[in-house]
């Protein structure tokens, strides 16, 4: 195995997923339209409360859109392989699990950036939002480092469809919904019942949203953002290897129990 093989291996997943997106382009248009309308509708809820409220909500919609794509695409790619029955062929191929998962993560990042950028452009035009005074480089850094955490969470979630095609897919959506509830996407976490609040502090999205709002709405500089950036970076650097490890253990379990096969 050389670098060329590893590169080809990672590219395989990006290329394959791109082919699938192209094939189901109609559905892509439907999902994108839904996401755009959803973000606009959420923004409009705050329209009577002033521009700042609109921005507050729109940032939530945008950030959650990007992070949930990362999370969802990674776990979904495993679920899709289980549905099609190709997972055995991917697992049998002479590439490491690291290359396999990195390929899927790479795709999720590219796809997430493209889709979120399209939504952002439409939102900015629709609401006539001005981002003068915002710390855009800071915003980008926060988004990148928090992406790592969601890649790690996506890898952990990918274990669910790996072990059970149908029930695993249900559970992934429940996990995603749980993160949406606790992370203060559209509200401050102090409005949550007291018993839920400790969970909010465990979600990387809580910190991402705070930092993004600070950078975008208050123009917070790098000095102010740094503690959150470091926290997200450390969380991400921990969650990615933990995700890989959990996935590898689940793969071993699936091979021991014969859970990879679809038929035959």
């Amino acid at each position: 195995m050389n670098i060329r093989t590893h590169t080809y291996g990672s590219v395989a997943f990006v290329e394959r997923n791109f082919a699938l997106v192209r094939r189901y382009i109609g559905w892509e248009a439907v999902f994108l339209s839904y996401n755009v309308v959803n973000a606009l509708a959420i923004g409009l809820i705050g329209a009577r409360m002033g521009k700042e409220m609109v921005m507050y909500l729109v940032v939530g919609a945008m950030v959650w859109g990007f992070l949930s794509i990362l999370f969802h695409e990674i776990s979904e790619s495993i679920a899709w392989e289980r549905w099609e029955g190709t997972i055995e062929y991917t697992f049998m191929a002479p590439i490491s699990r690291f290359v396999h998962l990195i390929g899927n993560c790479l795709w999720a990042v590219v796809y997430g950036v493209v889709r979120s950028s399209l939504i952002l452009i439409i939102i900015v035009l629709f609401f006539g939002i001005s981002i003068k005074g915002a710390n855009l480089p800071g915003l980008l850094v926060v988004l990148v480092v928090s992406g790592l955490s969601f890649v790690g969470l996506g890898l952990i979630a990918a274990v669910l469809p790996l072990l059970s095609t149908e029930k695993g897919a249900y559970a992934t959506h429940i996990m995603e919904a749980g993160l949406l509830l606790i992370s203060g996407v559209y509200y401050e976490i102090d409005v949550l019942p007291v018993w839920i609040r400790p969970l909010s502090y465990l979600s990387p999205a809580t910190y991402t949203l705070r930092a993004m709002r600070a950078a975008l709405l208050d123009g917070a500089g790098f000095g102010e953002l740094m503690p959150v950036i470091l926290l997200l970076l450390v969380t991400g650097l921990l969650l990615v290897p933990v995700g890989m490890l959990v996935f590898s253990r689940a793969e071993y379990y699936a091979k021991k129990k014969g859970k990879l096969k679809r038929s035959g």
């Binding site: 060329r4 080809y8 395989a12 394959r16 082919a19 699938l20 899709w80 099609e84 191929a93 035959g264």
Partner: peptide, 24 residues
């Protein structure tokens, strides 16, 4: 295997290209 496991929505060539990449 007995059931031809592929990504059925994409072409034969796209499936083969995917497999080729995995094998370098």
């Amino acid at each position: 295997s007995v059931d031809a496991a592929f990504f059925k929505g994409i072409s034969a060539w796209e499936n083969l290209r995917y497999a080729a990449r995995l094998y370098g």
